[in-house]
């Protein structure tokens, strides 16, 4: 809910967005979610700073603040979703919405595999660096740089595609070996909400409504 509100709030004008971000920040702190949000924002700090500087330089301070807040909010929304929602909950929600089980499982597995893909990607980067690929710029003439960069990209993408395909097949076999296609299946138990969840939900909904009522 908090993630959905944040992703919708990016459309607000600057003043309301600033109010939303303040309240949103308080809810994030109340929910004990500061650590994952901080980690993700830290990863994009260089991009945010560059964007802010360029927007300020070419358009204006107000626009730069607006774009920075929007970007930060979108990243935070995704971080919150990942930090608070398990793939099983995603699958259960999809199934409750009427999505076929096979499709819901595929989405949930893809969602769960996001960090696996990231891990594999880092592993590939390290493995290729260890053999001298993706290293610092060589003494090649500048016009040959694009060929080297293309080779480097292939060196990363091909193993990534192969490894992801291998992993997908292993998951398929594991699911099939545990009767995934069985026609009879115990109905899913929905996600259980704690009192803090109710508090956050109520706070977010209230905040969202308040902003639009004010508008």
């Amino acid at each position: 809910m908090l993630s959905l509100a944040a992703s919708l709030a990016v459309m607000l004008p600057l003043g309301k967005l600033a109010v939303f971000v303040s309240c949103f920040g308080a809810l994030v702190v109340a929910g004990g979610l500061t650590r994952p949000v901080y980690d993700h924002l830290r990863r994009i700090r260089v991009l945010v700073c560059v964007l802010f500087a360029l927007d300020w330089l070419f358009i204006g301070l107000g626009f730069a603040v607006l774009i920075t807040l929007r970007l930060g909010l979108l990243v935070t929304a995704f971080t919150l979703l990942c930090a608070t929602t398990t793939p099983e909950e995603v699958r259960q929600v999809f199934e409750r919405c009427g999505m076929p089980r096979r499709l819901a499982f595929t989405f949930a597995t893809a969602y769960r595999s996001l960090d696996l893909v990231e891990t594999e990607w880092h592993g590939i980067l390290e493995a290729q660096r260890a053999r001298g690929i993706m290293g610092p710029a060589s003494a090649d003439p500048p016009w040959s740089g694009w060929r080297r960069r293309l080779g480097d990209a292939v060196a990363l993408v091909v193993p990534a595609v192969v490894l992801v395909a291998q992993r997908a097949w292993q998951v398929t076999e594991a699911a099939a070996a545990r009767g995934f296609d069985a026609p009879v299946r115990r109905p899913s138990v929905g996600p259980r909400l704690a009192s803090l969840d109710h508090l956050l939900l109520a706070g977010t909904a209230g905040l969202f409504i308040a902003l639009y009522v004010v508008q």
Binding site: E120, G123, I124, E126, A127, Q128, A130, R131, V154, A155, V157, V158, P159, V162, L163, Q166
Partner: peptide, 13 residues
């Protein structure tokens, strides 16, 4: 020292 990783598929393309 050169490094050979556990999963050789990470280097092959």
């Amino acid at each position: 020292l050169g490094m050979c990783f556990q999963n050789a598929d990470r280097q092959i393309f």
